[in-house]
């Protein structure tokens, strides 16, 4: 089993093995805009080879955190990404980092062939053959301008450019925004099949939690500038249970100290951490909660203090 994505700071050590090297390490990371606190003393460690979902409501601090990681904005606190200070060494860092924001950021005047020429000209880790191979699977014409492509095609082009970069860290900020379900699925399949391996790290910020759950190794919930949830998917499966219980057994279920309770379709859903599944099974149907269930519980209820979050 691979190293946990998140551990208390004092237990974090690297042993030189690339599979457990830290890709990102932040201590006391803060960012404010006037009186608004975007990031509030965040401590974060991401190990190499993980696929991390960064999930939060609008204005939670996702983009601020990604901007700090990418060196796009100054911050307070300590931050180390792939051994670089992002704010001071952004240009060097970006040789090893690939960043894909939503599809609207490719310049509309850019021609497809020019984008390949340009990337090959300025990016030391760009492999044109890989990008050409990726585009060959699409219907994108080389002479087309980005502005003439559909949203799905723009996403394919951007992904082709991103995949062709031999990057150690891929940061995706709502990469499938505005795309239909088919393109979204293709996007993440390509990501897994063509990019990911154990030496690469991926951070995905998205609202489509359920669509990416199956590809993640770790999940982070951010709210109000704080990390309110930090778990590997293995830990989620091992520690969290969701019980569906009828009205007559609700009091018994509540006696087991659920983290969160919600009512749906005449049944009650109770979320537990560390509860014995065998005990829960005597009260109703037990399953591993989805990320969206956890998100509802942790973010809506602001329960970071009561959940024993590791931060």
């Amino acid at each position: 089993m691979s190293a946990p994505f998140y551990l208390p700071r004092k237990t974090l050590k690297t042993n030189g093995d690339p599979s457990t090297m830290r890709c990102i390490e932040a201590h006391g990371l803060s960012k404010t805009f006037g009186k608004t606190v975007a990031l509030n003393h965040i401590d974060l460690q991401v190990e190499t080879g993980r696929i991390v979902g960064l999930i939060g409501p609008n204005g939670a601090g996702k983009t601020s955190l990604l901007n700090a990681i990418l060196g796009l904005a100054p911050y307070e606190g300590e931050l180390n990404v792939l051994g670089f200070n992002p704010w001071q060494q952004r240009a060097r860092l970006m040789e090893d980092v690939c960043f894909v924001a939503d599809v609207a950021i490719l310049p509309r005047w850019l021609r497809v062939n020019h984008s390949l020429d340009y990337m090959a000209g300025i990016h030391p880790r760009f492999n044109r053959t890989v990008a050409e191979g990726f585009l060959a699977k699409t219907t994108i014409q080389r002479r087309s301008k980005v502005g003439d492509l559909s949203k799905g095609m723009i996403a394919q082009l951007h992904l082709a450019l991103a995949m062709a970069i031999d990057a150690k860290l891929l940061v995706l900020d709502e990469p499938t925004l505005g795309l239909d379900l088919l393109y979204r699925k293709q996007f993440y399949e390509s990501l897994l099949n063509d990019f990911y391996d154990k030496d690469r790290t991926i951070i995905v910020a998205t609202h489509h939690i359920d669509e990416i759950q199956h590809i993640l190794t770790d999940a982070i919930f951010i709210d109000g500038g704080r990390l309110v949830f930090n778990q590997s998917m293995e830990d989620i499966e091992a520690q969290f249970s969701e019980l569906m219980v009828s009205n007559d057994l609700l009091d018994d279920a509540r006696a087991l100290n659920p983290l969160h309770t919600r009512h749906t379709f005449g049944r009650h859903l109770l979320l537990y951490r560390g509860a014995d599944p065998n005990v829960l099974a005597t009260l109703g149907d037990v399953r591993t909660p989805s990320l969206s269930d956890l998100f509802m519980a942790f973010v809506n209820n602001q329960p970071s203090a009561q959940t024993g979050d590791k931060q």
């Binding site: 020019h114 000209g121 300025i122 880790r125 492999n127 031999d166 063509d194 990019f195 391996d197 030496d199």
Partner: peptide, 29 residues
């Protein structure tokens, strides 16, 4: 991965070459 494992030390792009490509892209735009 299409690339295999990330290589540690890529060939650095020449700054003048980067400048030339950036100027060229300005003329495209």
């Amino acid at each position: 991965s299409l690339h295999g494992s990330p290589s540690a030390a890529p060939a650095r792009t020449n700054r003048l070459q980067q400048l030339a490509w950036n100027i060229r892209r300005e003329f495209w735009e």
